[in-house]
Computed example of a mutant assay.
Amino acid sequence: MITKEDRERVAGWFAGRLPKQWQSAPAEITIDREEITVRLTIPDVDLPKDASDAARAEARVGRAKAFREETRKQRMEIAREAEHRYDAKVSWGLALGDHTELWTHIAAPVMTRLRQPQRMVLDTLVDAGVARSRADALAWCVRLVGQHEDDWLVELREAMASVADVRAKGPATR
């Protein structure tokens, strides 16, 4: 389990390592067992106030593409350092205005055992064309739960972090 202290250490390292000019807000760092995702926020595009929503959306896509290309070499160097330091893959993302992107993020395999009723749910999603495979169907289900239960999941993660902190303060086990 990743502790609050682990998250703070990683976030602190990136806060010190990332160039200030890459950020109009502190980087958002998300960590799990396999991956560290660094989402940068850069200033929004500068367009006339009467620019259409379509023009603004396309300008944001173009700016994100340019930022990705302009920073690639330095991001790869920072990722290599962090991967060596924390033994986890580093992925990158970007936010500007209401546009967000994730780059180079991993899709980690997860083994699970499902009983027939749960497999039938996945098979229904595949048969209906919602997903290409059971794995895609399961990922779709997880995304759906995450969207609809976000507040509950945040509360659960905070509770788990509190338990980890209390355990860390307790007596050492052999």
Rank of each mutant, 00 (worst) to 15 (best):
A79P: 14
E69G: 04
R119N: 11
A82V: 02
T30H: 00
A51G: 07
A161S: 15
V166Q: 14
R33A: 12
E83T: 14
L40K: 05
D44A: 00
T124G: 09
S91C: 09
I31F: 03
K20N: 07
K65E: 14
E77Q: 09
S133P: 12
Q118L: 07
T104M: 01
R33E: 12
L156H: 13
A59P: 14
A57V: 03
R80P: 06
V166S: 12
G93T: 10
A57S: 09
S91F: 04
T104D: 15
V145P: 00
I31E: 11
A27C: 07
T71Q: 04
T30C: 00
M120W: 10
A27W: 05
V154M: 06
I31D: 04
D44Y: 00
K20R: 13
L40A: 09
A15T: 14
D165L: 11
Q21S: 13
M111F: 08
V110K: 12
M160P: 02
F67K: 07
T37D: 06
R80L: 12
H84T: 15
I29P: 10
M160D: 13
D123E: 09
T100W: 08
T124K: 05
A82C: 07
T124A: 14
R7T: 14
M1R: 11
R113N: 11
V142M: 08
K49W: 07
G97M: 10
K4S: 11
R115F: 03
T3A: 14
V90D: 12
H148E: 08
T124R: 12
A135T: 06
M160Q: 13
W92K: 01
S24E: 09
A11V: 05
T124F: 07
S133L: 04
D50S: 11
A59H: 09
D46P: 01
E101R: 06
R9S: 12
A54L: 08
L102K: 05
E149H: 01
D53H: 01
L96G: 01
I2K: 09
S52D: 10
M160F: 12
V154F: 03
L125I: 02
P19Q: 04
T71L: 01
P19M: 04
R60P: 02
F14Y: 05
K49M: 11
T173D: 12
P109H: 09
D165Y: 09
P171V: 04
E5N: 10
D150M: 05
L102P: 00
I106E: 13
D123A: 14
A131F: 07
E69N: 10
D44F: 02
V126W: 07
M160I: 12
V90M: 05
V126Q: 10
R157M: 07
R143Q: 08
E155C: 00
G146R: 02
T112N: 13
I106T: 09
E101F: 04
P117W: 05
R39S: 13
A66L: 08
R157P: 03
D165A: 15
E77Y: 02
R113H: 12
D165K: 11
D46Y: 02
E158I: 05
E69S: 13
G146N: 04
P171D: 15
E101S: 15
K65V: 09
R72I: 03
T173A: 08
Y86K: 03
I2Q: 07
V154P: 00
D46V: 06
A64N: 08
H84Y: 08
A64G: 15
D6V: 15
L122Q: 03
V45H: 00
A82N: 03
